[in-house]
Design a protein around this nucleic acid. Structure first.
Lengths: 225, 225
DNA sequence: TTTTAATGATAGTAATACTATTATAAATAA
DNA sequence: TTATTTATAATAGTATTACTATCATTAAAA
């Protein structure tokens, strides 16, 4: 039996649903490769079209602009990650063990998920690290938020926040701590490879060190005094 | 006596030093206003030139492109902030008190500094919150780093890191904790106003809450066990 | 006073970020 | 089966962006 994992996406993110056609899936697959290689600023629909072997106008039938495509990709990633988390923390009753597992999942380079055919999670994870913040660090963040574009990110944050509350019901900042863990899992990774003096992992360049740092940070805060 | 504060800037960031001419200072002053108003993506040298009453080519004589200008502005801000910190923590011997003061300075909206004529620190602080990460979240981060563009940020991080070590010499992640404080002082602020469900400060929208969160985070981690 | 340096005015180019039109092929419905 | 809808390909075109180049003018320095 071959399973397939589908993430339900916000319809307002696209013009035509890219999951439902060969061209659409090609757009997703190749945009991940191209953004990964060239960075979001240098990425254009023209280059993407050439890569795929279609025309610029063809891409525009699926996505209004490259910002929407980036938001789509990151939203997909957050949705996928929430599933990973619920899958890998299933059956775990101890919230502390659960939270450790979550931190590990957030900070570890992901291997390609076989259940999602045309999406390379390893590359997408790198894109979320380097470009993810650009999805919301814009002037339109308010409008985008009204259209629920960031719901997957907020859902993930809520899930992690409630595990935090399970660990310590007195802790006052579960959601801020959750968003801190998420952001820092990525930023410390980016810093480690690109601006190592902003971290303490410069020499080793090991994700396990980021995990240790985050565990220390989180569980010191949650320790009942 | 009228004092004037000068931040020494990296020469590779500009073509002509903007501090040394009326036009140059206008470029800095108006770019801060324009980026604040329109956001970095919508900001162009053409609009800036119109704003100032000069020509596009005039701007290009000072800055190679808008990326370099953004890096210049953020670098200036980090340099200025490091001075603020050294000024406001001067004479404080207790590193814990010092660190609390640093967190407050990082997370508080700044009032306009009279010592720096043409720069509006309040607006610049907002720009650093919303656009600051875009200065390094690029494909050229490696080259930019080689040219020392991020030195002011790294210096600030080192300074805060050493205060952290003063607080607890056994703590293993002083630099990562420092970059976490800096980034989260800004991100939690951005989230509070734009994506409030990612924080626990949605209702109050008070910076004092961010300060409390950061203090709790930091001093839990530094508590000697 | 001559030279240099900074600015203003103007033009021009390649690339980007789109929109529009028409033809064709493939899938679906009558 | 034909007729109709739908997706795509091919092509063209526009406004804006991100620059570079040239030349005249003005102000400052030698």
């Amino acid at each position: 039996m071959k399973l397939q994992l589908q993430i339900k996406m916000n319809e307002a993110l696209f013009i035509r649903n890219p999951e439902q056609s060969e061209l659409g899936r090609n757009i997703i697959q190749h945009s991940i490769q191209l953004i990964y290689k060239q960075g979001f600023e240098a990425f254009t629909f023209k280059k993407l079209a050439e890569d795929i072997g279609t025309t610029e106008a063809g891409i525009y039938r699926y996505f209004e602009n490259k910002h929407k495509l980036l938001v789509y990709l990151t939203a997909w990633y957050w949705g996928w990650l929430e599933f990973q988390i619920s899958y890998h923390t299933n059956n775990i009753t101890d919230p502390v063990v659960k939270l450790r597992r979550v931190i590990k999942l957030l900070a570890t380079a992901v291997e390609d998920d076989e259940l999602t055919g045309y999406i390379n999670e390893t590359l997408l994870h790198q894109i979320v690290i380097s470009e993810g913040s650009k999805a919301y660090l814009t002037k339109q963040v308010g409008e985008d938020n009204k259209q629920q574009f960031f719901k997957p990110y907020k859902d993930l944050c809520r899930v992690i926040g409630s595990i935090i509350t399970e660990c310590n019901s007195k802790y006052k900042y579960p959601k801020s701590l959750a968003s801190t863990i998420i952001e820092m899992a990525h930023f410390q990774n980016f810093f480690m490879y690109n601006l190592p003096s902003l971290t303490d992992f410069g020499k080793a360049k090991k994700e396990t060190e980021i995990i240790s740092f985050l565990n220390d940070l989180v569980f010191s805060s949650l320790k009942k005094s």
